[in-house]
Design a protein around this nucleic acid. Structure first.
Lengths: 247, 247
DNA sequence: GCCGATTTGTCCGTATGTATC
DNA sequence: CGATACATACGGACAAATCGG
């Protein structure tokens, strides 16, 4: 029940590619044929193709055709390029997971947090610290800060389940854009204490800034991962070099 | 100069946003005003806006306007979402870097490599191993495999400079799409031997599959990073806002 | 709550340019 | 060279969301 026509076409094509109905390295039918098949304008079809190209399914070749460059891959722990909650990730990978809330507090933004997150100093926030267990091992420590104004009525009980589900299904706030940064840091004593680090002296830190559909910042999160269970995938396209090529 | 009109508009807008001519959290002029200003059709403008939205500069709000969600950030070691060579990265960050080639060989794809990379067993490849020094410290160990058929005439001398520049400027092959995976692994003895790990027992591993403009695989690379100097940034969107390839 | 103006979202048809074969 | 296929661009139409009166 996709609302938009281009999205229905996108899903249909993606399904066929994933089913290898259009196999790896083959050329798609020409745009004109596909527009006939889907009964749409060329622009509408091209929008679906553009989406698939961005996501690494297709490679268009001017004057020749559109090549399929998708191959089925192993399941991965985390996806880049889409926003996904922890609950959605484990569901997609059919894992058994438990979340434990170790801190739930109402605070006000201090100087340091403001400079990290972009929240204004003094803005009321929910501070939540959670540990994620997969198959009994403590693998992720999440520290979330939500705007109280934009996420009212948050409780420790909600945090134990899925904050994102609460935000979207109960508050009907649409989550739109996330800016993310990934680094590696030496484990703190609190990391050692709460996570099963298995000899690793470091953690993978994923910092998130999340904006709602109004373009307002409503969440800042630090996710600290046990390194062995961390994986990101991504598709990138080459545009013109950001800096004039230094020869 | 940009060939396509939408790209000129894209650059102009991005420049104004980065200069905070359109500041963080403000609304852009309406699409109709901007089409007047740039003397283009609405679809052409919208294509530029879609690009900026994908890259985390803008958040469009139906019925209201387009909000700027870009804020200037600290310089980072590596960018996600775009393909960038090591040479381009250091130029962008104004760093002093040295590349040392520790291995350069012509090989044929074996079973293990084929399953990792997708090259066919027996396909002739160039195998290159390089160590990247930033300000005198050995921080990255790259292991590249290039298709000999698609990258003929490669030499150790070229590898010491920039293979990407050779590929694009000399061979005139256009690099199009990269699929990337990021994980953390325990350091091998060769990592310890070649890199300045500074007490870290692990490395960040970035695996790349690169396709040329014909949709053919021509490179497989493993980049092993000293964890302290690894960073990437990314912008993700939930559901999908817009990507009109309309024009 | 309704209505109309504004603004973004979707879709269409057409024309022209450019690359491949 | 011509035919085919993708790339860019324009202009118009209507839908959907927001906001103010």
């Amino acid at each position: 029940m996709p609302k938009a026509k281009f999205e229905g076409i996108y899903r249909s094509l993606r399904q066929k590619i994933e089913a290898q109905d259009y196999p790896y390295q083959s050329l798609l039918p020409a745009e004109n044929e596909l527009t006939c098949e889907y009964g749409c304008a060329r622009n509408t079809l091209r929008r679906a193709l553009a989406e698939l190209t961005d996501q690494g399914y297709l490679q268009p070749i001017q004057g020749k055709g559109v090549r399929v460059i998708y191959r089925p891959a192993g399941k991965t722990a985390f996806l880049m390029g889409v926003i996904e909650s922890f609950q959605e990730t484990i569901a997609r990978n059919e894992l058994h997971a438990v979340t434990k809330v170790v801190r739930f507090a109402a605070i006000e933004t201090n100087e340091r947090l403001a400079s990290q997150s972009g929240f204004l100093v003094g803005e009321p926030l929910w501070a939540i610290e959670r540990v994620r267990y997969l198959d009994g091992k403590a693998l992720i420590r999440d520290v979330n800060y939500f705007s109280q104004a934009m996420v009212p009525g948050l409780t420790a009980g909600v945090a134990a389940h899925s904050v994102y589900e609460y935000i979207e299904k109960t508050l009907h706030v649409r989550i739109a854009t996330t800016k993310r940064k990934v680094t590696v840091e030496r484990a703190t004593t609190r990391d050692e204490e709460l996570l099963d680090l298995d000899g690793y002296g470091s953690v993978v830190v994923v910092s998130n800034l999340t904006f709602n559909a109004d373009g307002l910042l409503f969440e800042y999160t630090q996710s600290r991962h046990q390194p062995a269970f961390f994986c990101f995938e991504d598709t990138a396209t080459r545009r013109r070099p950001a800096v004039p090529p230094n020869d």
